[in-house]
Design a protein around this nucleic acid. Structure first.
Length: 424
RNA sequence: GGAGAGGUGGCUGAGUGGUUGAAAGCGGCGGUCUCGAAAACCGUUGGGGGUUCACGCCCUCCGCAGGUUCGAAUCCUGUCCUCUCCGCCA
């Protein structure tokens, strides 16, 4: 959410930022509502002041035994007038809140201007793309031949876009989760958390999934609870409504959770394999930090995610999202894309973003500044470290052998009880 | 699921209709004392919003949402959360 004062004072700059995003907002209407709202507020405050003064007078008169009846009667009409205006104000306030909650974040000045994903510049490419002396197979074929991945039976159990892992496959998924968690806790300094996998409507609103993207979420019937689409939601909400001590910042969390997404509007996209599932595992990095250091923290968070791929010897590249491709809540985002040999393309495996104070304002997460009065909003960041299912798929495809086996990356082998290769 | 207790400032905890933004203690900050520190003592110490160039003035907030009243932390209703006992249960 943008600060209403900022919006009021920088209308044209905001309009420009939204244009770069390709987002249309009726800022003229905003100006009018804002003026109306403040006019009502001032009227109410004046009446309330009048009533407060009169109430004190009444209390005094009752003490001295004077007759206060005349003022009481007068205040009766003032009170009903206040009540009437209060209704107008809360209607006006609701409209304003709805408007503000629907506005996307403003891109950081460093974000390249562009229309869509074709305008995203590549920041760097890391690792060697493997050369095969045979036709590289897609991971779903490899997995099914090795009997470690069974998408057909998963469809019987639940439906399309669910996965069922067996034996070394289930083990590999679990090994990846543990490997990622251990690296981020032991080497990168994150505190591990295991949050709820369902959250309420408020939490979803704080991080920006709601109110605009409800159709992307799985919602429980009969409960105002949603399945989390990413650990970002429960973990960022750990500190909702809190005032943090400045010397505690930055706070860095890592969480493994399954993620649930309806994938509304992506019918026919990535219908085969593990790339686009309704349920997938992810290890997520989340930071709360001082506004002054949030862009340094974004670089370090991105590095923390990249290290996983370097340790696994998987080839990848980092791209920067342009203004037109930026997510709703983000001010700046890097995507890490992994090389998928069978399709011959890079696929997103991590998305690392700085939300600045956009989520913090919605979730009311602040810190106390030493030597300054008042509080300030923290900056929140998060990034995948990494999407586990896609990492699984990438390992199968990048490390497949001519005989149909898959070599396990060396640093992962201790997590696989020494298994060096998965064979049929 | 049944019965009960409770949610007050950074924390502990008073307050049951009228200068209560809220006693007291702890913590924090500033000072006195000291070579310095500790102790002691003194002072100070919430958030959000409107208005103003500013000083300031005003409104609001005692889980949340309503209601009663001239006036609500205090009374009423609903709701969420926490705790205790019983039942059930991974």
């Amino acid at each position: 959410m943008l600060e209403i004062k900022y919006l009021r004072q920088n209308l044209s700059a905001v309009q420009e930022a939204f244009n770069a995003r390709g987002y249309q907002a009726d800022l003229d209407a905003f100006q009018k509502w804002d003026g109306d709202r403040r006019a009502i507020l001032q009227e109410i405050e004046l009446l309330r002041h009048e009533r407060n003064v009169a109430s004190d007078r009444i209390a005094e008169m009752k003490k001295t035994g004077e007759d206060a009846e005349a003022i009481v009667i007068e205040m009766r009409t003032v009170s009903s007038k206040i009540k009437e205006l209060d209704k107008k104000l809360s209607a006006s306030q609701e409209m304003m809140d709805a408007f503000l909650l629907a506005l996307p974040n403003i891109p950081h000045a460093s974000v390249p201007v562009g229309k869509d994903e074709t305008d995203n510049p590549v920041v760097r490419t890391v690792g060697e793309v493997p050369k095969f002396e045979f036709e590289p197979q897609p991971h779903w074929d490899i997995g099914s031949r090795l009997k470690i991945l069974d998408l057909e039976r998963a469809a019987k159990i639940t439906g399309a876009r669910f996965a069922l892992y067996f034996g070394a496959g289930a083990r590999l998924e679990r090994a990846l989760i543990n490997f990622m968690l251990d690296t981020h806790t032991d080497e990168n300094g994150y505190l591990e958390v295991l949050p709820p996998f369902m959250v309420n409507r408020e939490s979803m609103t704080h991080t920006g999934q709601l109110p605009k993207f409800e159709e992307d979420l799985f919602k429980l019937s009969g409960w105002e609870y949603f399945m989390i689409p990413t650990a970002e939601v429960p973990v960022t909400n750990i500190h909702q409504g809190e005032i943090l001590a400045e010397d505690r910042l930055p706070i860095s969390y890592v969480a493994y959770t399954p993620c649930f997404r309806s994938e509304a509007g992506s019918h026919g996209k990535d219908t085969r394999g593990l790339i686009r599932q309704h349920q997938f595992n992810k290890v997520e990095l989340v930071k709360f930090c001082h506004p002054e250091s949030s862009y340094d923290e974004l670089e370090s968070l991105l590095n923390n995610a990249e290290i996983i791929l370097q340790k696994l010897a998987l080839p990848y590249r980092v791209i920067e999202l342009c203004t037109g491709d930026l997510g709703f809540s983000a001010a700046k985002t890097y995507d890490i894309e992994i090389w998928m040999p069978a399709q011959g393309v890079y696929r997103e495996i991590s998305s690392c973003s700085n939300f600045e104070d956009f989520q913090a304002r919605r979730a009311n997460i602040r810190f106390k500044q030493k030597g300054k009065k008042g509080t300030a909003l923290v900056h929140t960041l998060n990034g995948s470290g990494l999407a586990v299912g896609r990492t699984f798929a990438a390992i199968l495809e990048n490390f497949q052998q001519a005989d149909g086996s898959v070599v396990i990356p060396e640093l992962l082998q201790p997590y696989m009880t020494g298994i060096k290769k998965i064979t049929p």
